[in-house]
């Protein structure tokens, strides 16, 4: 195994890890604010990919301009999902919420099969052919751009959460809903916006990888399981944790791919998952007693 092969793998892992980070930040935001485990997150990723795919195929926009379409579309889908389906059961026991989000996920996938067939679709873009070389290492432009767009949105999300009143209200509502309500913060509106943002993160993550990843109705499951690993690793509800966790899992997968056959490359990230659950269930950045 040469050094350049190792660096190549780590680089690919880091680039895809950035996308995991963004998707997982959306998932952890939804959990942190509403305490709802969103099993439909993968379907939102899938919808983001389809919106990007159809924007390019039908409207002939640039794949990266399509992200500007994906964000608002997925925000509205997420907010509607929250308002009409999550909100009525927001105080229900967890297993009811699980069944609901899982059910919605199955519904969305089958709707996608019905509307767009189960075929794999590949976005046709000239970007996919472009590579840079540093020594023996190849950097694919589309992977680099996916990473950059994911990092950009992750950074914007972080700034919004830490610097704006809306973001602080989201954090306040996730920590102490009663206190937030008594300060005049409209909790239901905060839930709506948080779900919208969470869904948009999933969708944009999906859209960012569409130039090099096939789209099909069940594609979300490839990512959502990883997202759950990342969210648990970073501490459920911890935005910064999800960010770092995504990069770690991306790297762990690439290390796995170096030593193990392709079908077993996830062993390392799932091992991390199990170890975290056993020894530090509050996540890398969580308090021990929480």
């Amino acid at each position: 195994m040469t050094m350049s092969f190792v660096f190549q793998s780590l680089l690919n892992g880091l680039l895809v890890g950035g996308v995991y980070s963004l998707m997982a930040m959306g998932l952890t935001l939804i959990f942190g604010v509403m305490k709802v485990v969103n099993f439909a997150h993968g379907s939102l990723i899938m919808l983001g990919m389809y919106v990007a795919y159809w924007s390019v195929a039908l409207l002939h926009v640039d794949p990266y301009v399509s992200i500007l379409i994906v964000f608002p579309v997925l925000f509205i889908i997420g907010a509607s999902f929250q308002k009409f389906l999550i909100n009525p059961i927001i105080n229900a026991p967890e297993h009811n919420q699980l069944l609901l989000t899982l059910g919605v996920s199955l519904f969305m996938e089958n709707l996608a099969v019905f509307l767009w067939s189960p075929d794999y679709r590949v976005m046709k873009t000239s970007y996919a052919e472009i590579n840079f070389y540093i020594g023996d290492i190849t950097i694919s432009l589309v992977r680099l751009l996916a990473f950059c767009f994911a990092m950009l949105l992750a950074a914007i999300l972080y700034v919004v959460l830490t610097r704006t009143d809306l973001g602080k209200a989201i954090r306040a509502a996730s920590e102490e809903p009663r206190g937030a309500l008594l300060m005049g913060i409209n909790i239901r509106r905060i839930y709506l916006i948080s779900f919208g943002i969470g869904a948009a993160c999933a969708g944009v993550g999906g859209a960012a990888i569409t130039p090099f990843f096939p789209v099909y109705p069940y594609v979300g499951w490839l990512f959502v399981i990883t997202c759950f690993v990342v969210v648990v690793l970073g501490g459920m509800g911890n935005i910064l944790g999800a960010f770092v966790g995504g990069l770690i899992i991306g790297l762990a997968d690439s290390v796995g791919a170096m030593f193990l056959p392709g079908s077993m490359k996830s062993i390392i990230s799932f091992t991390i998952f199990i170890l975290i659950l056993l020894f530090k269930p509050t996540g890398l950045f969580g308090k021990n007693h929480a």
Binding site: D165, K168, A169, R171, A172, E175, E176, R178, G179, A180, L182, M183, I185
Partner: peptide, 16 residues
């Protein structure tokens, strides 16, 4: 009290 524990003192006041 129901203050927001991981927000800073200043951020808590801003949320008021």
């Amino acid at each position: 009290r129901k203050i927001f524990p991981t927000l800073s003192v200043m951020e808590n006041l801003e949320m008021g």
